[in-house]
Design a protein around this nucleic acid. Structure first.
Lengths: 136, 136
DNA sequence: TTTTTTTGTTAGGATTATCTAACTAATTTT
DNA sequence: AAAATTAGTTAGATAATCCTAACAAAAAAA
């Protein structure tokens, strides 16, 4: 199915560009790609401890310790010590840290607006139906 | 259109994961994200000169010079001096450098296979029709 | 209750990716 | 033809990421 492959290549480019735009819009210039990746992963894992985060990022614990210290200094992350296990702490995003997710939301809403302009309501229904089957 | 926004968020995650998998499949462990980004941009711009590449990446020319030297050392890129302007050189990907695009192709083909398993031929037709309207 | 394992940190070092400043060589403008 | 601009490089500095080794404190296993 060559046509679909072509469309997916374009879709990939389209979504990448929209995320880029959102990043500029949110003025995340002082955040590196790596730092962004840490924040996204903390959000996905929902307050992991340091070992879990290091595992998900495939990095060593000392590496992650150091970078988390920097993110804490920038007021993007904070630690909460676990009650159950006093060795370990859970990582949380501050309100400022949560802006990254807001940024993704912004990119996605922009795409929705853009798509709505280009297709009819019926086509939209069908499109969502198929996407749902694909993405379960 | 809340449902679509939700689907787009998932689609974004889905495509990201597929690209990640492809990266592992291709064993691009010795390439940094930055280096990958340079290679992708060279491919997109179709043999830019150094100034054009620096512009697209929003980096300074010395920065790009240094990193291109490294990519040349790794046999991923080569320079060809311009006939028209002897100051400038065009950057090309070597066969090895082109593997990055092959990697994207692989990810996209995997997605096609995956999608084909989940929807009917009719739904596929409709899906491509709508995608085409969205992506022009 | 020792011993072992696990969680996380500190210290020190290597590599990568950036920048600004200063420069050369080629091209374009005046 | 002289002056200004443009393409790219070299040099030196800095910050960001990453690692291994060695450790302390808490928890789990023997």
């Amino acid at each position: 199915m060559k046509k679909l492959e072509e469309m997916i290549a374009r879709l990939s480019g389209y979504m990448g560009r929209m995320e880029e735009e959102a990043k500029e819009q949110y003025n995340f210039k002082d955040l590196t790609v790596t730092q962004m990746h840490y924040l996204e992963t903390i959000s996905e894992l929902e307050n992991p401890n340091l070992t879990e985060l290091a595992g998900a990022l495939k990095l060593t614990k000392p590496t992650v310790t150091v970078l988390i210290d920097k993110l804490i200094e920038k007021d993007l992350v904070y630690r909460i010590q676990s009650d159950a296990d006093r060795r370990s702490t859970h990582l949380h995003l501050t309100e400022k840290g949560k802006l990254i997710n807001a940024m993704h939301g912004y990119a996605h809403r922009r795409m929705v607006e853009d798509i709505q302009k280009r297709i009819t309501a019926d086509e939209m229904e069908q499109f969502i139906y198929v996407l749902r089957k694909i993405l379960v």
